[in-house]
Design a binder for these strands. Structure first.
Lengths: 354, 354
DNA sequence: CTGAAAGCGCTAACAG
DNA sequence: CTGTTAGCGCTTTCAG
């Protein structure tokens, strides 16, 4: 038997053309049936390519013609009510305009489309809580945070988030390892006094993991100067905050040679402050950012940055979500993807200073 | 009478809490009715705060309790089928990850939510073509481009796009004027040889307008050196292309003193190339970008950029769309918003050269 | 090979 | 104040 989503796609294909003239009242299946002189059941069958039940080629043609003539377009809502399937998956995130998030949008949509599903991006949980709107959801949220109430959604769900260990129903990567990777990279270049630029951050985001990874890695480098953490909010804008924090630190003297920032905006702010102070990157100070966004790529010098596998994670999440939906199961096994480091021009050996 | 969307919101509020335990089969209105010992009509009425028809406080309480007990959540699909209203509006765009687009997302969503509507972002027209999914749509597309087939959608629709004159069902700004504004700004600083950095672009985007505006403005400045247009694609990446084009032009000699780019990515590429060539911005060359995205803000020096009113346009579009939906009319009057210029640090008087 | 009919879960007259 | 009853447009047994 043809899987339903194929059928669905076929139907879409059949009917996807825009109206020549928007009709007063959209044609319904019943209209087509009347026009073709058959029953709605038959119309439904041919328009859905439900050819398991064979149909006389001649009636089939009559029906297709009628549909065409009436500019029939299926009503997605009615169909969804009858089938209990919307063939759309939700992608929930609070950060729709974040460049990090942007990296996963394309892959998720592709993967979904490939399987006959549509994507609905939503920023409020309401869309997920009322019944029937979507068949499943990808959540950019912390699966261990009970407070969000995402744990008990009535639809299959897969999280995409950072975690130290594989979690069920979650595609993860390890930000602790990511931060450590950055520090390790800097250490390998010979840096011993590496600041952690964290700015201000909530307790429930991904930053605590990065802080932890930073600390652990710092204490693991031989001859390390120990953690040097820059915190605080001098501006509500990340870029600005990175700039201000760095400038402030610079005024207090400089006994560090490298900066690891928890995201690329902060890193770019630091880069800017350094340049304005006449300090050369990477000759005098090295920097590594986080998330490997467009910001890192277009910085000058282009910044090395920790690449979280959010794009692959999204694709994987989409694939497993559809799989869960079609298996009628809420369970999808967790998987952890490795983080990497994209090397660019912002790291070098520390300068010898007198 | 309470407007329906308020009612809708109330209902959402009532039922928004997540399941303690996701039920085997979600409770329906009928379940609640049975549990409370009343009819579905009554349940529907109280859960929708349809208190135009008064209801005994006691039965009301019985119903609310029953709903609570059964963890009832309305089925959005069934409701939509019955009311022929989904209370969601679509935002169609091809450029979901573009920073220019990002500027309108928040305002659109806010405006919609304020009116009791939900936002569905979509990149494929299919979502708009199948009946019933959304009540209306905001289209980031050229309303004069018939080929896209958006002209004849069965739902109320408002475009957001650049146009020289107000168009019906469209919130516009004028990119011709925007480009002219940039050129005028540069000219006011004393520049006479102003290049237009256009790179490569399709015939059907907004760029042709910018080119036209650039040319018109150039020819209007007294003593102008005439248009100097940089075209071509040295890289598929805009930033890279701006860089490469500028570097190439630099090698051929420099008899211009300012650059106007059709977007901030291109402008940043030019800025980079200039710096790498040791040319100071704005001391030796001035630059103005377009769209006033985050890119312009975080450039060094921060770049002046033409600000298109896409955020206000989005908000306005959302407001008029909802209005059209509730008026059951497809007509919304067009409006043109002014473009402005955000001044930063990338413009100055041209250097005197020997 | 085709049709009749029973829903999907909810809303909205219309009676009482 | 509350219940009955048609639908909304489509899918899907189950008969024929």
């Amino acid at each position: 038997m043809v899987p339903f989503h194929r059928v669905f796609c076929n139907m879409q294909t059949l009917t996807v053309k825009p109206y020549a003239q928007p009709p007063e009242r959209p044609a319904t299946l019943a209209d087509v049936a009347r026009e073709a002189g058959v029953s709605v059941a038959t119309v439904s069958r041919v328009l859905n390519s439900k050819l398991a039940v064979p149909i006389t080629p001649e009636t089939e043609q009559r029906i297709r013609d009628a549909a065409e003539r009436l500019m029939y377009r299926p009503n997605a809502i009615a169909r969804a009510l009858a089938t209990r399937r919307t063939y759309t998956a939700a992608l929930f995130t609070q950060e729709m305009t974040d460049p990090h998030f942007a990296q996963m949008l394309g892959p998720v949509e592709d993967e979904l489309r490939k399987r006959g599903y549509r994507l609905a991006v939503c920023t409020d949980a309401e869309g997920l809580l009322s019944e029937g709107r979507v068949d499943g959801a990808i959540l950019l949220a912390d699966p261990t945070n009970e407070a969000q109430g995402f744990g008990r959604l009535p639809i299959p769900t897969v999280f995409v988030w950072s975690a130290r260990v594989p979690l069920p129903n979650c595609v993860t990567w390890d930000d602790v390892a990511g931060a450590a990777l950055a520090v390790g990279h800097l250490a390998a270049h010979g840096h011993r006094a590496i600041v952690g630029l964290f700015g201000d951050y909530p307790d429930d985001g991904t930053t605590p993991d990065k802080v932890a990874g930073y600390r652990a890695a710092i204490s693991a480098v031989p001859g390390s100067a120990g953690p040097i953490e820059w915190r605080g909010q001098l501006s509500s804008d990340q870029f600005e905050n990175g700039f201000l924090l760095t400038r402030q630190a610079l005024e207090a003297g400089r006994e560090w040679t490298a900066i690891f920032a928890r995201n690329d905006f902060l890193a770019l702010g630091a880069l800017r402050a350094l340049r304005h102070a006449g300090i050369k990157v990477p000759d005098e100070v090295s920097i590594v950012g986080y998330n490997d966004t467009v910001i890192a790529r277009i910085a000058d010098p282009a910044m090395s940055s920790v690449l979280t596998p959010i794009a692959e994670a999204g694709a994987l999440a989409a694939a497993s979500l559809v799989d869960a939906i079609e298996r009628r199961s809420h369970a999808v096994s967790g998987i952890t993807l490795p983080v990497r480091l994209t090397e660019r021009k912002s790291c070098a050996a520390p300068a010898h200073r007198g």
